[in-house]
Structures are given as structure tokens and as C-alpha cells.
């Protein structure tokens, strides 16, 4: 049976991608870039699940990726609707501008 790479390399790749997404969500100030960072994090966690499914030869990991995709799709739909809504209210997309309880 052909082997691909050690399981740890797979996990390290997923960790790098996850942290790139987390860094994007932390460092960027544009609301859309923050949402993009969260998307990258969700995709990286899916990658880790697929690697685990392959490592233990179980389909459960792949099943969870379906749920992650459903969560990502609904998160991005509601998140973008919120961004459009708040952009209409305040006229700004910069996260630093949202510092008032009553705007």
C-alpha cells in the first residue's frame, strides 16, 4: 500500500493554515478580511479532519467536514449580511470605528 506523508506533516500544514487565518482575523481591521480569516481557519480545520480520517481509516472525519462546510456557509451568509447592515448604519467597514454602544 502506497504511503503519502507522515501524519504529523499533514497536521503541521493544517496548523500553519489555521494560524494564517487567525493572524488575518486578529491583525486586519477590515471587517471583510476578518471574515475571510475565519473562513481560512474553518478550511484548515477541515483539512485536519480529513487527515485524521485517512490516518485512522474511518469515515467519521470526512463526515465532520460536511458539517464544517455547512457551518462555514451559514456563518459567511449571516456575517456578510451583518456587514452590509452595519455598513448601511455607520458607513464604515473599519473595525476600529465600531466603538459606540449607541451609534
Amino acid at each position: 500500500m502506497a504511503t503519502i506523508v507522515p501524519y504529523s506533516h499533514m497536521l503541521i500544514l493544517a496548523a500553519i493554515l489555521f494560524l494564517l487565518g487567525a493572524g488575518c482575523a486578529v491583525a486586519r481591521r477590515n471587517l471583510i478580511m476578518i471574515l475571510i480569516g475565519v473562513e481560512v481557519m474553518l478550511s484548515a480545520s477541515g483539512l485536519a479532519f480529513i487527515g485524521a480520517a485517512m490516518h485512522w481509516q474511518q469515515l467519521d472525519g470526512q463526515a465532520f467536514v460536511i458539517f464544517i462546510m455547512a457551518v462555514a456557509a451559514s456563518e459567511v451568509a449571516v456575517g456578510l449580511a451583518l456587514i452590509v447592515y452595519s455598513q448601511r448604519r455607520t458607513g464604515s467597514l473599519n473595525a476600529d470605528d465600531y466603538d459606540l454602544m449607541k451609534g
Partner: peptide
């Protein structure tokens, strides 16, 4: 902060290097 997290993750993975073997092609 991301660099510190990554180093800790990689460290954990290499501490447990005996467990996870190579991935089989299926």
C-alpha cells in the same frame, strides 16, 4: 503570537512522534 502557537503545536506533534505513522493511500 501565531509563531508561538505554531512552535507549541509542532513541539507537541514531535513529542508524540511514535503514535502517528505514515498515511496510507486509500
Amino acid at each position: 503570537l501565531s509563531g508561538i502557537c505554531l512552535m507549541i503545536m509542532v513541539g507537541f506533534l514531535f513529542l508524540n512522534a511514535g503514535g502517528p505513522g505514515p498515511l496510507l493511500l486509500v
